[in-house]
């Protein structure tokens, strides 16, 4: 059986909200090391995945590997019944056809129980090669959200050009064109207060507009803004986002979720004509 106790319902709510518009249903793979998930969207353009490590839960028990088929819209409904600061207990018996949730208020004065029916999903698992990326960009997640929103006002795709001078995001459309250049900033990990503003609290003292860029080779990649905007739904889970890119391969966009794990998206680039 699986029994996992998570201190903050907000983490699970946030993860489901950041995936449910990309993936309708998928298997949660549970093992003694944690809970993971991987699924592509219907058009095979974007892959969403997450990992919640066993150590990140207050208590965690998984006696044998379980594959729990869930429909995200159902999960989203159930999790709306939990308050952000509720404790969540997830429980599934071996070979069960339901997944049980218990939401406990922090002062233990209210206990709610819900269950969702599990699905039998024959989902394929994709092998993602371990790779070193030529460019790794780290910026505050709220800045990334604003950037994607701003680019979307003009165009449908964004070109990311990473070079020695910095990383430039540019777009164009019917009304005109726009670009934003970020120069490498070491202040991204600087916890001292400065004039650049700060992140939303949390660890790292992220500068609001700082951008750290590690570059091995120049990278130029065109990406769909529709998908990038979808990925930014994970921004509330993390102070910063890491965008890893190489030429002509899928970009990886990762949001670390506290100490418990991460949510990671892959997006296939636009192909040049």
């Amino acid at each position: 059986m699986l029994e996992a106790r998570l201190l903050q319902a907000s983490i699970l709510k946030g993860i489901v909200e950041s995936v449910k518009d990309l993936v309708r249903e998928a298997n949660f793979d549970c093992s003694d090391s944690g809970i993971s998930f991987q699924a592509m969207d219907e058009s095979n353009v974007a892959l969403s995945s997450f990992l919640l490590r066993a150590e990140g839960f207050e208590t965690y028990r998984c006696d044998r590997n379980l594959s729990l088929g869930v429909r995200f819209s159902s999960l989203s409904k159930i999790l709306k019944c939990a308050n952000n600061d509720d404790i969540v207990v997830i429980r599934a018996e071996d070979d069960a056809d339901v997944l049980n949730f218990v939401f406990e208020s922090p002062d233990e004065s209210k206990i709610s129980e819900y269950q969702i029916k599990l699905l039998d999903i024959d989902g394929e698992h994709l092998s993602i090669p371990e790779q070193e990326f030529d460019c790794v960009i780290k910026m505050s997640s709220s800045e990334f959200s604003k950037l994607c929103r701003d680019m979307t006002l003009l165009g449908q795709t964004v070109v990311i050009d990473a070079a020695k001078e910095g990383v430039k995001f540019s777009t164009y459309g019917d009304i005109g064109a726009g670009s934003v250049l970020y120069k490498h900033s070491s202040s991204i990990d600087d916890s001292s207060s400065g004039s650049g503003g700060k992140g939303r609290g949390g660890s790292g003292g992220m500068s609001a507009r700082g951008c750290s860029i590690e570059l091995r080779e120049p990278v130029s990649l065109e990406l769909s803004l529709k998908y990038l905007n979808n990925f930014t739904k994970a921004a509330p889970l993390s102070d910063y986002v890491v965008i890893s890119a190489s030429n002509e391969i899928p970009v990886m966009v990762q949001f670390d979720v506290g100490d418990i794990g991460y949510i990671r998206y892959y997006l296939a680039p636009q192909i040049k004509d």
Binding site: L47, H125, L126, P250, I271
Partner: peptide
């Protein structure tokens, strides 16, 4: 803009 690429040309089923 180019054509949207697909992930299954990069990632193969296990």
């Amino acid at each position: 803009a180019g054509l949207q690429g697909r992930l299954d040309t990069f990632f193969k089923p296990v």
